[in-house]
């Protein structure tokens, strides 16, 4: 993606969320209509213990600016 000079830089954040707690928490944020910035994108994992360090590095390699692991 090319960034035009006048646009404000927005970080791209990838979230790895546990299905049983924080993914459900993100659902609850939705149900409660709690607005948050749209630059976080969530990947569902069965448990935070399923997250390989490799996945984190891979996300950085592919353009992520921040990783949010929650579980």
């Amino acid at each position: 993606m090319s960034v035009a000079p006048e646009t404000v830089w927005e970080p791209k954040i990838i979230g790895f969320f546990c299905n049983w707690c924080s993914y459900a928490g993100a659902d609850l944020a939705g149900v409660s209509r709690i607005n948050y910035p749209p630059n976080v994108r969530i990947i569902r994992v069965p448990c935070s213990s399923r997250i390989n360090p490799y996945l984190v590095l891979r996300a950085f390699q592919h353009g992520a600016d921040g990783i949010l692991i929650s579980g």
Binding site: A26, D27, A29, N35, P38
Partner: peptide, 11 residues
Amino acid sequence: NIREHCTWVHN
């Protein structure tokens, strides 16, 4: 999940 994680929170 484009409702709970998108349209409901980025409306």
